[in-house]
């Protein structure tokens, strides 16, 4: 079998992502001419003499310390959120769930804030965020299944709303007790979602677990098709439903919780990107999962470019994705009904 269709879509999406990344790298409050950058590379890599070496320090600073970490982080987080969204939707056979709706983002943000209070170690913050992300999705599922024993689309969404509210309230408690001059503003700005604080070494640290979980989800994608038929049919076709579900939920929760640690709550990406892709290329997860990763990354990169360039003040990206995401989701809801029924 050749996977012509898959390769075609993935290459086009990847090309778009790379172009967008290059655009973001060179265009901003301070535009960098491609020719200047080429001269810089020529100077750095081939040690050729250049006339304007004094501007190179500035270019180096802008590209490697400011823009590159931000671009990489935007791609990573967009990919993590969109892929987890697609996986949650398949696992719960429910096109209305996402890391945001299931309460994972709220749980992880509570966990991360708690982590920041109790420890200065980066990995502790990550682990606590993941732990509470996992607890919150478990809580959402528990509430959803307590009321009805069948798998109900609406009940799970309600369970997520309840779980999300719980952790948002708990987060408020942390905000209330946090130092109003230092910790509180830090938590508030971080929660609004921002990629501005990214440091290259931090990005690499978080990139490893995120990339591992995205890769894992891509490798498991053929099982998601079967899982979305419901447990009984998936089992009868030979799938180890429990094992696949637990691994998938752990991977999706890990990726989306880490996105919260890095950039606060960035909503809607996990909900709308899988829907848009399903409408464009169909529901098969073999293509949906990797394409969600690429398009999710591109979407957040684009949103970040808008947040940097649209106004003279930078809009927090979490606010922007909501502003873009909500109208898109309304359109998606209107068009997608036919595809669900």
């Amino acid at each position: 079998m050749n996977y012509t269709k898959e390769i075609k879509y993935l290459s086009v999406a990847m090309l778009f992502l790379v172009l967008l990344a290059l655009f973001s790298l060179f265009w901003g409050q301070y535009d960098i001419e491609i020719s200047t950058f080429m001269n810089y590379l020529d100077y750095k890599l081939f040690l050729n003499e250049q006339s304007d070496t004094q501007s190179f320090a500035l270019i180096e600073n802008i590209i490697f310390n400011i823009r590159l970490p931000r671009i990489l982080l935007a791609i990573l987080i967009g990919a993590a959120l969109a892929t987890s969204g697609a996986v949650f939707q398949a696992m719960f056979v429910n096109p209305l769930v996402s890391p945001g709706i299931l309460g994972v983002l709220a749980g992880a943000s509570f966990g991360a804030a708690l982590g920041m209070l109790i420890s200065e170690h980066w990995y502790i913050v990550q682990i606590v965020a993941f732990g509470f992300g996992f607890i919150s999705v478990g809580f959402a599922v528990l509430i959803g299944s307590m009321v009805t024993n069948s798998r109900s689309t609406v009940m799970l969404v309600l369970g997520g709303v309840i779980s999300g509210s719980l952790f948002t309230s708990l987060l408020s408690v942390i905000k209330y007790v946090a130092d109003p001059y230092s910790t509180l503003p830090a938590i508030v700005y971080w929660l609004m979602g921002s990629l501005a604080m990214a440091q290259l070494n931090e990005v690499f640290l978080v990139a490893i677990p995120i990339l591992i979980s995205i890769t894992g989800m891509i490798f498991m994608s053929k099982y998601f098709d079967l899982m979305s038929l419901g447990d009984e049919e998936a089992k009868a076709l030979g799938v180890n439903v429990k094992l696949i579900r637990i691994i998938a939920i752990i991977l999706a929760t890990l990726a989306s919780s880490l996105s919260v640690v890095m950039a606060g709550i960035i909503g809607w990406v996990g909900l709308i990107i899988p829907h848009i892709i399903r409408m464009a290329v169909g529901p098969s997860h073999r293509l949906l999962i990797p394409l969600s990763a690429i398009v999710g990354g591109a979407f957040l990169l684009l949103a970040d470019a808008i947040s940097r360039l649209a106004l003279s003040v930078e809009i927090p990206i979490g606010i922007l994705t909501s502003l873009i995401g909500i109208p898109i989701f309304i359109i998606v809801l209107k068009n997608a009904r036919a595809a669900w029924n």
Binding site: V93, A236, L237, G238
Partner: peptide, 26 residues
């Protein structure tokens, strides 16, 4: 295991509704 059983028995359930609309080939 379920995988073993699936290599002996195929199950055709009463009706099939999935919110994700796969193609017949899929």
């Amino acid at each position: 295991s379920h995988r073993d059983i699936a290599s002996y028995i195929a199950y055709i359930p009463q009706y099939n509704n999935t919110p994700f609309n796969y193609s017949v080939m899929e």
